[in-house]
């Protein structure tokens, strides 16, 4: 579909193959900036998710004990509640009249609301929340596989706590970290509801652009081209993650 074209203002698709749509993406600063913004948001989401997921996963595996089930249930929340309900909650949390601003204001700490919606901050908070489980679950299963006494063994060989983390725990959880990062990145890249609602239409990402083209402008071939670009990035990430897994398994 993406190699066809649709004359502006017409709903009839011209079925001659063309690369016009791709040329338009490459040539138009709007789409390039959108793509870069989307990549940046996905990358930031992945990094933040990894940062939060690592201590949480380690704690689940080593310290949670009989609360493990309960905590994993909480971790699953964003996954099982869909995109919309948590987003709605976030809007009430982050909005100008929301919980955060309301609390800070009634405590007299601020007098003008923090702007947490309609910008990248809001989107990031939403994306990290939505896809944190995708990072935690593979990490937990990777950490589960590592024998309980490796840290003890490493420390008995004279490694300091930080060294244990850097030399033992991180490398051994690498497969989970790689899988989780790939999943989070891909999910964030194609996420549509979160950026649209938390960005309040002011932050365009690739997915929202595609939505716009498909649903509002009704230029389906162009929407397809945008979708194809996303798919190509996904394939690239998938291959890279697969390669990284192999590399991590070997070293």
């Amino acid at each position: 579909m993406s190699i066809w074209s649709q004359p502006t203002g017409s709903l009839i698709v011209d079925p001659t193959p063309t690369i016009k749509n791709y040329a338009r993406i490459a040539g138009d600063g709007y789409y390039i900036r959108g793509l870069l913004r989307t990549l940046w948001l996905s990358l930031a989401t992945t990094a933040l998710a990894a940062l939060l997921a690592l201590p949480l996963s380690w704690w689940i595996v080593r310290r949670a004990g009989r609360f493990r089930g309960l905590i994993l249930t909480l971790v699953l929340i964003p996954m099982v509640c869909g995109a919309l309900l948590p987003t709605l909650g976030l809007m009430n949390l982050l909005g100008p009249l929301g919980v955060i601003n309301g609390t800070l204001k009634s405590l007299g700490l601020i007098d003008r609301s923090w702007k947490l919606l309609g910008n990248q901050t809001g989107i990031l908070i939403g994306l990290v929340h939505a896809f944190l489980p995708l990072m935690v679950l593979p990490l937990v299963s990777a950490l589960d596989r590592l024998p309980r006494d490796v840290e003890g063994a490493a420390m008995s060989l004279g490694a300091k706590r930080l060294q244990v983390w850097r030399r033992i725990i991180l490398p051994l959880s690498a497969p989970g970290l790689i899988a989780g990062s790939a999943l989070v990145f891909c999910a964030a890249l194609t996420s549509f509801v979160t950026p649209l609602l938390l960005g309040q239409g002011k932050v365009a990402t690739f997915a929202t652009m595609a939505y716009q083209q498909a649903s509002l402008v009704l230029d389906w071939p162009f929407a397809s081209a945008l979708a194809m670009v996303m798919l190509a990035i996904l394939a690239l990430i998938g291959t890279a993650a697969w390669g990284a897994q192999k590399w991590a398994a070997e070293t």
Partner: peptide, 20 residues
């Protein structure tokens, strides 16, 4: 400290639903 970090992350996971 560990517990604190963990609970902060958990709070972040629960917060939107709780607010909802």
């Amino acid at each position: 400290l560990w517990a604190a970090i963990t609970f902060a992350v958990l709070a972040y996971l629960i917060a939107p639903i709780a607010v909802l």
